[in-house]
Write a protein that binds this DNA or RNA. Sequence first.
DNA 1: CTGAAAGCGCTTACAG
DNA 2: CTGAAAGCGCTTACAG
Lengths: 343, 343
Amino acid sequence: MGRKPTGRPTSFDIAYAAGVSQPTVSRALRGDRSVSEQTRQKIQQIARDLNYTVDKNASSLRSQRSNTIALLFFEDPTPDESMINPFFLAMLGSITRACADRGLDLLISFQRMEDDWHVKYQDSHRADGLILLGYGDYTTYTPKLEKLVAQGTHFARWGSVSLDSSGATVGTDNVDAGRKVGEHLVGIGKRDIAFLGEADETCPEFLGRYTGLCKVVEDAGLPAPPRFDAITTEEAGYAAAKALLSSGGTCDAIFAASDLIAIGAMRAIAEAGKRVPNDIAVVGFDDIPAASLTTPPLTTVTQDVKGAGETLVEALLAQIDEREVKPRKLPGELVIRGSTTQN
Amino acid sequence: MGRKPTGRPTSFDIAYAAGVSQPTVSRALRGDRSVSEQTRQKIQQIARDLNYTVDKNASSLRSQRSNTIALLFFEDPTPDESMINPFFLAMLGSITRACADRGLDLLISFQRMEDDWHVKYQDSHRADGLILLGYGDYTTYTPKLEKLVAQGTHFARWGSVSLDSSGATVGTDNVDAGRKVGEHLVGIGKRDIAFLGEADETCPEFLGRYTGLCKVVEDAGLPAPPRFDAITTEEAGYAAAKALLSSGGTCDAIFAASDLIAIGAMRAIAEAGKRVPNDIAVVGFDDIPAASLTTPPLTTVTQDVKGAGETLVEALLAQIDEREVKPRKLPGELVIRGSTTQN
DNA sequence: CTGAAAGCGCTTACAG
DNA sequence: CTGAAAGCGCTTACAG
């Protein structure tokens, strides 16, 4: 045979071998129902024998659809430019799997907040849509989102669901999760709970967690939880706890807006000569792998990472197909460990 | 203006606006030196104004080059199917950055050992080459590699450099790193060192680390380090240490082939009522984020993750361009923490 | 159920 | 330095 002396076979080679036209090969290989069962079988067999695969570039160019999704991590530039939040890494895994299950390819890219996200993938037709994952200042983030919407770019994002009704947003029910944490802490007899994390408009997710905590505390007739700002790093958690402990105020529990913050806080607590959980109970958020390795192990909130990946991909696909997309809240689950209960 | 009523502009639109031919636009935008400076400037300005980007599918189809690399993680299927080794996640970050610096897109995919890697990307022309990252049984891995070579697929891999002279392999100098660990342990007076990890042909990297350790121990006239098999998981490390401690044998130091193994081992040591580092010193490998969080913090070996990403991408690019590629060894750095020294 | 024709948006010889 | 022509390998109306 060997119609083409070099390179990989094309649909014309398959067509020649099967004695049909090239468009029929294209149809058969995509499982088009209009091709007769017999012809389809034959063509698929030959394609297999010749080790043929459809050229994605040609197919995407013609059909104007790439079956590819681009995953953009964005983050504030960090001084050490290293640490990605482990939680997002877990998300990456679940999104990868969700894409693979649907035959989608996944492009990935780390973006700085300053960058022009939209241009890169959608405009160059590499991807049918974008999934946005990240943390960082929400106030600089929002205008970019609006630009994406204005451009008609398809995207789904992970984040705070409440503040944003613009379609494909998926996130943990942070208020509910904050409530669960509050109930647990109040339930074990804590009365004086502090919150560590930037709970304002720059970070609506943290704000939700704080809000949930406040509700429970208020209902129990306890003093409102003081807040100490911290971004999602161990260093920030350490500094915030330092500030809390040296402010002269007392507290018998800390709810940190993330595990990274909680881990930093535990270091500060140890340095201050206090004990976890007896003097101060500590709760984190995310359930990163390191959370079970601290001393004592960290009580935290597990987010539904697997469900998140599935839901994000589904939401994006729905948007691409112009189906209706509603924001989705996923439940967070409290995981109780030694940092809030002695054993 | 508005030549096309709908959709994004093409190079024809730019050509029309600039009063030149379409091929000239193509040349100007790629910075072809043959286009006059003036024309080039003008075209680039117009392209910017019209928010034009080159259609990657068309350009890849025509040029038969995609400027895209596919990163394949492969792993033995794990029961919980969750945990990716944190070390490879760090590698992902550095490879992403190295690709971005060179204007390459990055496709990512997790593969099971059983899968047919080669077909997926190279054959469908999505990627110019593959980077292979992973762990798992090397003996099932090698035949796949050979198949890739036979197919003329371009790839670079992270792994054991010594056993494999086939081009684009990059890895830590495991023997040297093992030696550093051995010297440290012998230097602090340990005499009876055990190795935890599958140090045979199924995992040449672990074997290298063991070999380095053995050399030092032998030179010091100490008994050869016993080996206890463990794959790279916490559970396996726990089980291996259990086996070691209950074998009735004594040991005053453990070199674990990975941090995950070391963390599991420390748990087993604590359960056996022994203290780290006084009764048993522990050293890991990889310096994952969790390594500094254990009690005591884990002495380990840092691999040059940043250099690894750069080197892998460079090696792959060289291979694609048919330039000569030599295997590259990167140094590992010992990081001494509390698990081998009291303070 | 199948085929002939057109065309997706580029890049690349080939001319001049 | 620039243009006219061809063609990368598919998918999609359109006919029959």
